[in-house]
Simulated scan of single mutants.
Amino acid sequence: MNEVIETILNHRSIRKFEDRPLTHDQIEKIVTSAQAASTSSYIQAYTIIGVTDKEKKERLAELAGNQTYVAENGIFLVFCGDLHRHEIAGRMEEKDVIPSLESTEKFMVALIDAALAAQNAAIAAESMGLGLCFIGGIRNHLAEVQTLLKTPERVIPLFGVAIGYPAKSTDKKPRLPMSNIYHENEYQQNEEQFIAEIEDYNRVISSYYEERTKGKRKDRWTEQMANMLEKKSRMYMKEFVQANKFDLK
């Protein structure tokens, strides 16, 4: 196994970091690695905001649901879907690009570009011995996040990534069986087999939690997912996205 694959397979979320900032060189390597990710039609529809200011990180931690590791890390990167610069490009070239920018397709391009860039950044950071945790909690209060980060129209903060030197590592969390994720040539629809595989996975996850928490927790994966999805969350998102000129037409 080569070192790249080993780094990828060794991924786990880190939620406790040393009080130690990243160097400019480390940040540059992480960001340029993010920029090396594939991008649809060369559009590069994302922006990365590196938050190092202590007060801003503390406010982001509060907005994300009081997650302390959003504030206590080497740097907090916020990945944004960004079509603002493309509106400017249209004005510079005297072309009407607005209908395209306000399409569902370009919204999806911005999301995909940002996710691809973030995964490259994550691999780069972990290859340097750093740890990280993706943070979707910033979407709890996006209007406040936008105000804090001073983002213009057509820019939406999507998620954050807390990066730093791990102060405490965690066990690697088991993933779904490959047969549930990878289908060859067409989507396999043998539900009996699917459920059997999920039941096996439930047992693996339940044992994982029970061992990790010394018996305090042993929920199954399907139980965890159903309980989470039963509760409505961030239901304001469609209106928020449209108000920010991503009209989903």
Score class of each variant (00 low, 15 high):
Ile205Cys: 07
Phe134Pro: 03
Cys133Trp: 01
Ile181Glu: 13
Lys232Leu: 04
Arg217His: 12
Ser233Cys: 00
Asn227Gly: 06
Ala167Asp: 12
Gln119Ala: 04
Ile138Pro: 04
Glu153Val: 09
Ile163Leu: 11
Ile123Gly: 08
Glu210Gln: 08
Asp219Gln: 10
Leu229Val: 00
Arg203Pro: 00
Ala110Gly: 08
Ser233Asn: 08
Ala125Met: 11
Met178Pro: 01
Ala114Met: 08
Gly136Pro: 07
Tyr201Gln: 02
Ala121Arg: 08
Phe240Trp: 06
Phe240Pro: 05
Ala114Pro: 09
Tyr208Cys: 00
Met225Tyr: 07
Ala121Met: 15
Pro157Gly: 14
Arg154Val: 04
Ala122Asp: 02
Phe240His: 07
Lys168Val: 08
Val161Lys: 03
Lys218Asn: 09
Arg154Thr: 06
Leu132Thr: 01
Thr222Asn: 04
Ala118Arg: 07
Thr222Ile: 07
Phe240Asp: 04
Ala226Trp: 04
Gly164Cys: 07
Cys133Ile: 13
Glu210Trp: 11
Gln188Ser: 13
Arg139Leu: 09
Ala143Trp: 02
Ala122Leu: 15
His183Trp: 12
Arg175Phe: 11
Ala121Thr: 06
Lys231Asp: 02
Ala243Met: 09
Arg203Asp: 13
Gly131Phe: 15
Met228Ile: 10
Thr151Pro: 04
Leu229Arg: 06
Ala118Trp: 00
Ala162Phe: 05
Glu126Asp: 04
Arg234Leu: 08
Gly129Cys: 09
Glu144Asn: 03
Gly215Ile: 13
Asn185Gly: 01
Lys172Trp: 09
Glu211Trp: 00
Leu149Asp: 11
Ser169Ile: 12
Leu116Ser: 11
Val241Gln: 04
Met228Phe: 14
Met228His: 09
Asn140Met: 10
Lys238Asp: 14
Leu158Trp: 00
Arg220Leu: 05
Gly160Gln: 09
Asn185His: 15
Ala118Asn: 06
Pro152Trp: 01
Glu210Ala: 10
Asn140Val: 09
Ala118Thr: 02
Ser179Trp: 05
Gly164Phe: 03
Arg203Tyr: 08
Glu186Cys: 03
Arg175Gln: 14
Asp200Trp: 00
Glu153Ala: 12
Phe134Gly: 08
Gln188Leu: 09
Leu148Asn: 10
Lys173Gly: 02
Glu239Ser: 10
Tyr182Gln: 12
Gln224Ile: 12
Pro157Ser: 13
Gly215Asp: 06
Ala226Val: 03
His141Lys: 15
Ala125Tyr: 07
Pro157Tyr: 01
Tyr236Val: 04
Gly136Thr: 12
Gln188Glu: 13
Leu132Arg: 08
Val145Pro: 09
Leu130Tyr: 10
Ala167Met: 11
Val161Ala: 15
Ala121Asn: 11
Val155Ala: 10
